[in-house]
Design a protein around this nucleic acid. Structure first.
Lengths: 166, 166
DNA sequence: AGCCATAGGTTGACGCATCAACCCGAGCGC
DNA sequence: GCGCTCGGGTTGATGCGTCAACCTATGGCT
């Protein structure tokens, strides 16, 4: 989160985005800010989980043995290793996960504790229901498709630009 | 940012989101995460500004006198007062803004410094160009419209739900 | 064997976000 | 006048995100 505002006609004469583009951009910014705030707050208040906690718990809970090397968890979440390490430390402190040495292996595995499993089982239904109520059911099937299409197109652009020497 | 993942078929048989919905949700999550990362990183690396710095600078630069009471800035950005206060303190330390007492008035005004103004003038064109290249130009006009429509629909849902007793 | 590069992981520092607590002056009721 | 509440604003604690620095087995090279 964190969505920067864009100044659309900054200090200059010619607009860099036309009216339609500007409306779309502002609508997107407002929506995404609100959406993540809403979902995050609900998780926090009802289940004492941050969205980040939730993401880790989801990934661990889906895998057999509910355990994973940190590096796999990193691949699954697309998080940087240091971010992940910090997050796991905090979650370990709270008893949601623990790092368990594997005999003979160099690196420990991250294991979902009973408590962590209980937490995700409690939170997931409500969260999914919210996503459905606010996101999925807000859009006609056809509009939902176009929305997904637009997201994919933007992601594609991003991939092109990310390879650029910035 | 911060976009929580959703678990779509959590521990249960029946899916809470159908295939289409799930695809759309995942596409949105991936896109929005990448987009804010990309724009934020560009601002930070090229101009040494966080997206938050940028948003404050934009708002101040648009107003006559380039000065504003904190409470107005709060309305403009929709930030909580404490978040705003912290942010202004950091920006003041760096010389981008300053808090200036107004004789006879109770509260000081937040003033854009020369340095702050120079920073936004430097950064804005590139930022707007990025928004255009990645977001606006990625979508055909018609798709852009539908996208905006979808965003608006979701925002509407959110407003309904936010008034609920959570 | 000895050396080095690299990958997986941790740590510390700092900026950012949120919550709760607090401060204080203006306006109001009495 | 006296005391209230209330709104604008600050502060501190804690969690989160990123960057840079660091640690250390392993695996490759010679």
């Amino acid at each position: 989160m964190r969505q920067p505002m864009a100044r659309m006609r900054p200090m200059a004469e010619e607009p860099w985005l036309d009216e339609t583009q500007q409306r779309a951009w502002r609508a997107y910014l407002a929506m995404s800010k609100r959406l993540s705030t809403h979902l995050g707050r609900q998780l926090q208040r009802k289940f004492d989980l941050s969205p980040q906690d939730f993401e880790i718990l989801v990934n661990l809970s889906e895998v057999p043995g509910r355990r994973m090397r940190a590096v796999e968890l990193g691949r699954a979440t697309q998080w940087e290793k240091s971010r992940l390490s910090h997050q796991l430390s905090r979650m370990e402190r709270r008893g949601l996960v623990c790092r368990e040495a594997v005999p003979g292996a160099r690196y420990p595995e991250v294991v979902l504790t009973e408590q962590g499993y209980a937490a995700i089982v409690r939170a997931a239904p409500t969260h999914a229901a919210s996503v459905r109520a606010i996101f999925a059911d807000a859009l006609e099937p056809e509009l939902l498709d176009r929305f997904a299409e637009a997201c994919a197109a933007i992601s594609e652009r991003l991939e092109e630009h990310e390879t650029d020497p910035c």
